[in-house]
């Protein structure tokens, strides 16, 4: 049964292998920057995640950049973090987003303020991501605000959330996914995958628990642009699991060939993920690399994107 009518939902429900992209809004008020980045993604992905003050750095509002995408004829996946707003602001934004045509939403806890450009700001965390999922579901399916009052005009939102199969404790990760499913999530986009062995195990467990029949799982892929990036991801980014073999492969090619090698690794992963039972699509996070998405989409055999009416 269709819940939001979003393009992403239609693609997934029709049984197609979904392909989503990502766009970080600018650190300023230039709509043109959003349009420029978005142009690379148009027609190449089913929906584009618009990050919400990612890494706790202030940027143009996620809902605003999402609306610019709609103007450009691209479907946004509106990200919302629990760090910056309480339940009143969240519900108000969700209603507004739906009213203006936003149909997908990704519910996240959000990086801690300490990481960002306002490290002494007070993090809100009135809700956590699981509670947020449940709140959106309640608004949409029961027509009730979190506080219990009736909603006059339910939002149409395809509810997404993240899963990190690589953070500790590994055994709990599938359980936490199960909690998100129980809360009412429709689709999951995973953290960037580099350790395929661990991801296979995660999906195996999720299949075993029957979770992959209840939720669409989009595997997160971020091509490495350079050896430096791989080393940074391996050592500096919490919850990221970059096996030595990735480092070794990038080390094994000339510096000016590292980006190509990174893309090749990503393409190999995508090829495997397409065949993996329980995986319903790819979420490509080409960070500040939007202009390479057309090529990656083409080489990954993702084009043309299916159209479902």
């Amino acid at each position: 049964m269709m819940k939001s009518g979003s393009n992403l939902e239609k693609i997934l429900r029709a049984g197609h292998f979904a392909f989503t992209g990502e766009l970080g809004p600018p650190r300023g008020a230039h709509a043109e920057e959003v349009r420029k980045k978005a142009a690379h993604l148009k027609g190449r992905v089913d929906a584009v995640n618009i990050t919400d003050n990612q890494t706790a750095v202030v940027r143009m509002a996620s809902w605003a950049a999402s609306l610019i995408l709609i103007q450009e004829g691209i479907e946004p996946n509106y990200q919302m973090v629990c760090r910056d707003r309480n339940r009143l602001a969240m519900q108000a934004d969700i209603l507004g987003a739906s009213a203006l045509g936003i149909r997908n939403m990704l519910c996240l806890s959000g990086d801690h303020c300490l990481f960002g450009d306002h490290p002494t700001a007070k993090g809100v965390f009135d809700l956590d991501s699981i509670q947020l999922i449940r709140m959106v579901k309640q608004l949409r399916d029961e027509g009730k605000f979190q506080g219990g009052a009736e909603v006059d005009g339910r939002p149409s939102i395809f509810i997404g959330a993240a899963a990190n199969p690589f953070a500790d404790p590994f055994e709990w990760r599938v359980q936490r996914l199960a909690k998100k499913v129980e809360a009412g999530v429709d689709f999951i986009q995973t953290q960037c995958i580099y350790n395929m062995a661990k991801f296979r195990e995660f999906i195996r467990l999720a299949n075993e628990e029957g979770l992959t029949e209840k939720v669409f799982i989009l595997a997160g892929i971020t091509p490495m642009k350079s050896l430096g990036m791989a080393k940074y991801m391996k050592t500096k980014v919490p919850g990221m699991d970059v096996p030595d073999e990735i480092i070794t492969r990038l080390q094994g090619v000339a510096r000016d060939k590292q980006a190509e090698e990174g893309i090749r690794i990503a393409l190999e992963q995508i090829a495997e993920l397409k065949e993996m039972k329980g995986v319903h699509g790819i979420h490509l996070m080409a960070i500040e690399w939007e202009h390479r998405v057309p090529e990656i989409a083409e080489r990954a055999g993702m084009l043309p994107r299916p159209v479902v009416n």
């Binding site: 629990c82 760090r83 806890s109 959000g110 990086d111 801690h112 300490l114 990481f115 993090g123 965390f125 956590d128 991501s129 699981i130 509670q131 993240a162 899963a163 990190n164 953070a167 500790d168 404790p169 709990w172 936490r176 909690k179 953290q191 919490p238 919850g239």
Partner: peptide, 26 residues
């Protein structure tokens, strides 16, 4: 929990420690 989560852990837990500080247990 640095985020005060009621349904943790978040994706930032790092070998048993919090993403905000490698010395702060998760």
């Amino acid at each position: 929990c640095a985020k005060g989560l009621y349904n943790g852990p978040c994706g930032g837990t790092n070998r048993g420690f919090c993403e905000i500080d490698p010395e702060q247990p998760c």
